[in-house]
Design a protein around this nucleic acid. Structure first.
Lengths: 359, 359
DNA sequence: CTGAAAGCGCTAACAG
DNA sequence: CTGTTAGCGCTTTCAG
């Protein structure tokens, strides 16, 4: 039927995975070394020889075996990304940025979901190092023991962290300006006239969240009106947001504004508020952090701090690549990307519509 | 300060990456082969010898070099996932399912974003095969030429597809029951009394979307009241949804219901509707497909077809693993996971509140 | 049960 | 410019 023409047109794309340098060498009547040189770079090879080798390689559809190459060179052309959970839209966009950058440079990207669990992280690291990945982008290293941190920073493969962690030396970092983001959020709420503003955040060990909290506190403390800050800790997830809002509603009905440490928490909080009959933004104004795509679609659309998620992943890989060029002796680089407030409809000036409703 | 104790307690976790079998062999006064055997499996080794080797390996904190092992065995203990875009929440959840399953079995997972682009897919495949991945989960293979498809199915590494693609033999597949999902959605809308119902879908080449469309059409065609179906094609994304809704509003104001091929499209459509002053669900009822997490938070909460995204990834990797056990001669396996309707608030019976509003 | 030896496929000196 | 020679670190016959 359609076979004749098809087979004629198609070139044997994946059939050449068993042909080796030796096959080409034999075919060309030269040595494998010559073939190797011709294929990679081609320096110190007569043009004609190289052409001939290339032609044969092409014809045989030669595909180099990366494992062999890797064993010989100690490099694998693969990078790794260890994050807590790819389902978090923050990380999925970051991952895309990282993968695009890696792919553009000829690297593949291993994805690891650690859930911020120390044991999982250790397992992944071990496996990745065993595979001789050329670089690692990871969430944080704070929940590893200091000794392990130290070892990691000396293990020979460049690692860039996605959190500031001033305490840890020896790693490059890429972060959004979380401190400033927290400050912007706090200031915005206070400028709206709010006197009692809550902050939902996560573990103290999470450097980025800590920065946001500090920025936020800086805003309230440096403010004239002596506003009150209530900080509530929980899990930095949608469910955590729900749960913290329940706590807030139960214990501190006087809060009129909320800065959530990320959009997931904000969305969870909004959901719980809705179920508790608390209106957003009439009863409580909320600002999130991340500017996750779906934040624009919630009820109400979420005011939030935008951070360049894709760019973070991209920058992290760029740094990795620059380190990889430096053959084992790179200087840690710290890059901080800007943030900005995105005003939508989840905030209102204090008193504007408040007390217009129930209760 | 805290150094003394710390250093004493911590074991040298990542320091052993340069110790090789030879080192252990030397230390134990045995041959590398003995060490190799002791470490992997340990068959045909005297218990004491093995113990001794293991102890030394432990002490030296030996970490096997996977590249070397891979070169020798032809396996890499890594799998790969080629999807269109990890930022799509459908895929990020699927990826998590796949990664968890892989990780549990001792495999790492390479992430590739193809954007469904033929060239990118080819590049990834080449790279992955060169790295001797042990298995690949991929979106689809339909946009590759038939010859390439054929080659792929014979290339020696198991591949499982995330779309049905009946036309292509030689691959295993894992999908949700898209046909039934489309049918459920269509029937639901028709049972609500809608007479003119639109369907927003994507490329014909996308097997899963085609199945949903077919299921949908089956529902409308098998219905008593002879309802009318309007199918509109565009990109199966949020933006695509916006754009298709604009088209619908411009051209076919009589549609009172919409089945979107996925939640992103549904959400985009809802957004565009909102901006056009079309009320959901009063003017148009909409049902999505996927049951993406944020669908519960939109305005209004989205009625949708739930498909087990995490489970799809998990199942795909399970199949891969089972194939890997079979040493090159596995029978393609096809698994189809169930779907169900999730009723929320984006649909209304025809006429219920309709015509109560503007225009 | 264990050692010796060959080889996986490629790279990288070192000679010619 | 090109061939020779060693490995990279591990697995896997094949002997002993």
């Amino acid at each position: 039927m359609e076979t004749g023409r098809d087979n004629a047109v198609v070139q044997p794309t994946f059939s050449g995975f068993r042909v080796t340098l030796r096959d080409i060498a034999k075919e060309c009547g030269v040595d494998v070394a010559t073939v190797s040189r011709s294929l990679s770079g081609g320096y110190g090879i007569r043009k004609e020889t190289r052409q001939r080798v290339l032609a044969v390689a092409q014809r045989l559809n030669y595909q180099p075996n990366q494992l062999a190459r890797g064993l010989a060179t100690g490099k694998s052309s693969t990078l790794a990304l260890i994050i807590s959970d790819i389902r978090n839209p923050f990380f999925s966009e970051l991952a895309r940025g990282a993968e695009d950058a890696a792919s553009a440079a000829g690297y593949d990207l291993l994805l690891c979901n650690s859930d911020l669990d120390r044991l999982k992280q250790m397992r992944y690291l071990r496996s990745l190092l065993a595979k001789r990945v050329d670089g690692i982008v990871m969430n944080s290293v704070l929940d590893l023991s200091p000794g392990v941190q130290d070892e990691l920073s000396h293990c020979g493969v460049p690692i860039v962290l996605l959190s500031r962690s001033r305490e840890v030396r020896g790693f490059s970092t890429v972060t959004a300006d979380n401190l400033r983001g927290g400050f912007l959020a706090g200031k915005y709420l206070i400028d709206l006239g709010h006197q009692v503003v809550a902050h939902f955040t996560g573990s103290r060990k999470h450097g980025n969240l800590a920065d946001r909290a500090n920025g936020f506190l800086k805003a309230v403390n440096s403010s004239e009106g002596k506003p009150e800050a209530i900080v509530i800790r929980g899990h930095h997830s949608y469910e955590g947001g729900c749960e913290m809002m329940k706590r807030l509603v139960r214990n501190r009905r006087n809060a009129s504004a909320l800065f959530a440490c990320n959009d997931a928490v904000a969305l969870g909080a909004i959901r719980a508020a809705f179920e508790a009959g608390v209106r957003i933004p009439q009863d409580i104004s909320v600002v999130g952090f991340d500017n996750v795509e779906f934040g624009a679609l919630t009820r109400p659309p979420l005011t939030t701090i935008d951070q360049p998620r894709y760019g973070l992943g991209q920058a992290a890989v760029e740094i990795l690549l620059s380190h990889i060029g430096c053959e084992g002796s790179w200087a840690p680089e710290h890059r901080m990307l800007g943030v900005k407030l995105v005003e939508r409809e989840s905030c209102l000036p204090l008193g504007e519509v408040r007390r217009g409703g129930r209760q």
